[in-house]
């Protein structure tokens, strides 16, 4: 049974989608379309191109917000990891942000920056940045001491230690911080489209709901979840490929 995992995955998908189809046919609720109706709506939106237009709109704040968070977050995280003064000053803010329900800031952001792109980018940033900063700083702080010692004993300058030891050693954790940041960014992007102004995918969801076109609404939700999951899984695969063996190779194996 070499392909047992694959068969079971397909079986598992068949069970869930089958249950969805049956529940839709009963129907359990007037607002619960069958799986096939939903897929039909998804195909229709794909063929007439409306879903691509929607994603062009949705991905704009997501991409910009993640890019800003990545740049600021990694820079700040490096500083926090390297300097105890920065650590003292900034860490508490991000620790609190990481635990706090930052979504509650959305009404204030809307009041301050309006209902346009700026607010949405802000929402993505506040969701994505804390984990990027915290991962970067703790990765820098936890660079194996023996590797830094090794570099010093072979006469490394501070710049060498940073570029040749700390950064490569920290990069797997920084990368997974980015992945978690993107995951949180997806939540933020959709939240802002549902809460602030319906645009892009959020617009399809809201509009189809208002005209009771439930298959289209479900299809839009299905597609965004599919997109996020596939993209994040690809990132994880890339991560495993890039940093294969990076966390191994020490004596303590």
């Amino acid at each position: 049974m070499q392909n047992r995992p694959l068969i079971l995955k397909l079986l598992s998908a068949a069970i869930v989608f089958g249950a969805w189809e049956i529940a839709g046919r009963i129907p359990v609720s007037y607002a619960f379309p069958t799986f096939l109706e939903t897929m039909e709506a998804l195909v229709r939106m794909t063929l007439d191109g409306s879903i691509f237009q929607a994603y062009a709109e949705t991905l704009k704040p997501l991409v910009l917000g993640v890019a800003i968070s990545a740049f600021l977050g990694i820079t700040l995280g490096l500083w926090i990891g390297l300097s105890s003064w920065f650590d003292w000053l900034f860490s508490p803010i991000f620790v609190v942000m990481q635990a706090a329900p930052l979504a509650a800031l959305i009404p204030i952001l809307v009041m301050a920056y309006g209902i346009g792109l700026t607010s949405k980018i802000f929402v993505v940033c506040i969701m994505a940045m804390p984990v990027i900063v915290l991962n970067t700083s703790s990765a820098v702080r936890n660079t194996p001491a023996s590797m830094k010692e090794m570099a010093h004993s072979f006469l490394a300058k501070d710049r060498d230690v940073l570029l040749k030891i700390i950064l490569p050693a920290a990069s797997p954790i920084i990368f997974s911080g980015l992945r978690l940041g993107i995951s949180a960014g997806f939540i933020g992007a959709i939240l802002s489209e549902l809460k602030i102004t319906p645009t892009g995918v959020g617009d399809i969801i809201t509009y189809s709901r208002s005209i009771a076109d439930y298959p289209s609404m479900y299809a839009a939700i299905f597609s965004i979840i599919l997109l996020a999951v596939v993209f994040l899984n690809l990132l994880e695969k890339l991560e495993n490929y890039l940093f294969e063996g990076n966390n191994r190779g020490y004596a303590s194996d």
Binding site: K9, S12, I15, V16, A189, I190, I205, R209, Y218
Partner: peptide
């Protein structure tokens, strides 16, 4: 093997998108 794929999907899915369905 039956459940793990779904747990992983929901773990990384943007769950905010499901709120309208719940509504």
């Amino acid at each position: 093997e039956l459940l793990l794929p779904w747990v992983n999907i929901f773990l990384s899915a943007p769950l905010t998108a499901l709120v309208p369905v719940l509504m």
